[in-house]
Design a protein around this nucleic acid. Structure first.
Length: 571
RNA sequence: CGGGGCGUAGCGUAGUGGCUAGCGCGCCUGCUUUGGGAGCAGGAGACCGUGGGUUCGAAUCCCUCCGCCCCGACCA
């Protein structure tokens, strides 16, 4: 039994000055966590109870799915991470340290290498697979910007699991098992979430989905269709276009358009000087970029910007992508800044990428590759040929859903889980093979799956709090019942303690507020702030042999005979 | 890493060159109070982030460094 009189807890009346998001403010005020350094937190008794309950839900669902729990050190030697090149590639996000002999170590940011090596050390036959193993571990990442309390920390607890299969069908099956287990897990945690496609499928056939818990302070933005439920990462959003069915356009016409280096100025001159009636959407923007040192042009409608993150995610194989700079124009004198058009791409040595909206047959106003001149009726397929279509344009609220064509919205969320078909990358570089039926070595294919356990505490808080404080779902609340004894007589305190004992005998966890010196108001406020789902008040109603039972979330109150309390709460 | 803000007691804060750094919450002692963050009296608690400088005198002005928060970049 937890007793407020002795619990290591001091609730705060004021919001801490360094906390802005609700979950952070309330978790600090209610005495669940305390900050130690940027992105590094301690758990106090109440917070740690909730943390452990979430951990336990995750563990149960993993075990239930037939996955086996293992545990690795957080402190790891450099060598395995050198084999996969991540000692270098991970960059400054990796916490590195040296032992007394000067050897390099790291604090694990993620454990693909260790899992792969563990399986390599134990198993060597196709008969041993499939296998899924997991751990619940503290991870360390020296994030450039820790944020929002425990939502993005530099030390955090993650459940990470890995599946090992001989072939793609096996991987698909393991992936689906994880997906199902995640759905059960997050449902039990009382989280609202969307399962979102995280990659366009262009990445070597790998598949990835994120579990996103919608929340206004979330740091991930994603696309959501309220009509059909389609949800996708902004990077993975697919543009819906219909084939061109307009009239055949006239031949290209070159027009003088002095001082029109921008889309706005171009539209202005066209509509005044040439009495045209065009908008930015009728123009074609030629965005020049350097992709691994080679100039490319990306065509998007003039009313859209290129989303570099989206373009980068969809340009397979390109490592270094950046916009053209003045010196790039200087090196490529034939490219006229502000007046580039796709008609001469071949001659200019440009690879032409285009947003899917640039469909065959569509005609555009675009640059004439000559200063102060633009061309109109420049037609896709006739006057220029797109080398490759790519999702490059920014996604906007109101764009058509690729499934049902209704307008989508852009929403914010916290990423609570991620499932990912890794493929053979790690098995390859670490030499994890098994012998197949013919006795030939086969490289194993892997999946990796993560749940942010500490982050889930904040995600639930974020989705459930109200103006009074935290408001935990029963499964993960620090206790099942919060009993408040009021008054100055001994009787309510004795009754409260007896009720607590009776409830505990039935398996409920009880937090008893037995503080004699605190006023009733203080105890009520604390109970609301802490957010245990059921609150029993032992006080005034005792005159009638009753106590008050409140539901924290709904605010419903009912008076119940002391003798009936256990019956009321144990269903 | 760019931009913005901030660092005074456990928490929230006042204090823009001048006496012993002020207040509220919390904490300790006593009395009163006890169904919505009680009252009175007394008390403990501060290297005013760090180092340097200016000055007769610095929490306050100048410089250095450190730390924290927010926006962006970044985020297997």
């Amino acid at each position: 039994m937890l007793k407020m009189s002795t619990l290591l807890l001091r609730t705060l009346r004021d919001d801490p000055a360094d906390a802005e998001v609700a979950s952070h403010r309330l978790l600090v005020r209610a005495g669940f966590v305390r900050r130690i350094a940027a992105g590094i937190y301690s758990w106090l008794p109440l917070g740690y109870r909730t943390f452990r309950k979430i951990e336990e839900v995750v563990r149960q669902e993993m075990d239930d799915a037939g996955f086996q729990e293992v545990h690795f050190p957080a402190l790891l030697p450099k060598e395995p991470y050198e084999s996969t090149n991540r000692w270098e590639e991970y960059g400054p996000d990796l916490f590195r340290l040296k032992d007394r002999k000067g050897n390099d170590y790291l604090l694990g940011p993620t454990h693909e290498e260790m899992f792969t090596l563990m399986v390599k050390g134990e198993f060597s036959s196709y008969k041993d697979l499939p296998l899924s193993i997991y751990q619940i571990q503290t991870k360390y990442r020296d994030e450039p910007r820790p944020r929002s309390g425990i939502i993005r920390g530099r030390e955090f607890v993650m459940k990470d699991s890995y599946s090992f299969d001989v072939d793609d069908e096996g991987l698909e099956a393991s992936y689906n098992k994880h997906r199902a287990a995640y759905i059960k897990t997050f449902d039990r945690l009382g989280l609202k979430y969307n399962i979102v496609s995280a990659m366009s499928g262009a990445m070597g056939g790998s598949k990835s989905e994120e579990f996103l818990a919608p929340c206004p302070t979330g740091e991930d933005t994603y696309v959501l269709c309220n009509a059909c439920g389609y949800a996708a990462n902004v990077e993975a959003m697919v543009t819906k276009v219909s084939p061109f069915n307009g009239d055949k356009s006239p031949a290209i016409e070159i027009l003088d358009t002095p001082n029109t280096p921008t889309i706005d100025s171009l539209v202005e001159v066209f509509n005044t000087k040439y009495s045209a009636n065009i908008s930015a959407a009728d123009t074609l923007k030629n965005v020049l970029l350097m992709a691994d040192g080679a100039p490319i042009s990306v065509l998007v409608p003039g009313d859209r910007e290129v989303d570099l993150k989206r373009l980068g995610a969809n340009l397979v194989g390109v490592k270094d992508l950046r916009l053209f700079e003045d010196e790039d124009f200087a090196k490529n004198p034939k490219l006229v800044k502000g007046y580039v058009g796709p008609q001469d791409a071949k001659a200019l040595g440009l690879k032409l990428y285009a947003d899917p909206r640039v469909v065959e047959g569509s005609a555009w106003v675009t640059g004439a590759n000559e200063k102060n001149k633009h061309a109109r009726y420049v037609t896709c397929g006739r006057d220029f040929k797109v080398d490759q279509y790519v999702e490059a344009a920014e996604v906007r609220a109101g764009d058509s859903c690729p499934k049902c064509e209704k307008p989508v919205i852009i929403d914010r969320a916290i990423e609570i889980g991620h499932i990912f078909q890794l493929g053979r990358k790690y098995a390859q570089s670490l030499g994890l093979t098994v012998l197949d039926k013919e006795g030939k070595p086969q490289v194993v294919t892997m999946g990796s799956y993560g749940i942010g356990v500490s982050r889930a505490v904040a995600a639930v808080a974020e989705q459930t709090y109200d103006e009074l404080g935290l408001c935990w779902p029963a499964e993960i609340a620090p206790a099942d019942v919060h009993i408040v004894a009021t008054g100055k007589e001994d009787q309510p305190f004795e009754v409260a303690e007896q009720i607590a004992k009776d409830l505990e005998a039935k398996g409920l966890e009880v937090l008893l507020d037995d503080r004699r010196e605190a006023s009733a108001g203080v105890k009520f406020k604390d109970a609301e702030l802490i957010g245990i789902p059921k609150i029993i008040i032992v006080g005034k109603a005792l005159a009638d042999g009753k106590v008050e039972v409140r539901d924290r979330k709904s605010g419903d109150k009912q008076e119940v005979l002391v003798a009936d309390v256990v019956k009321t709460l144990v269903k």
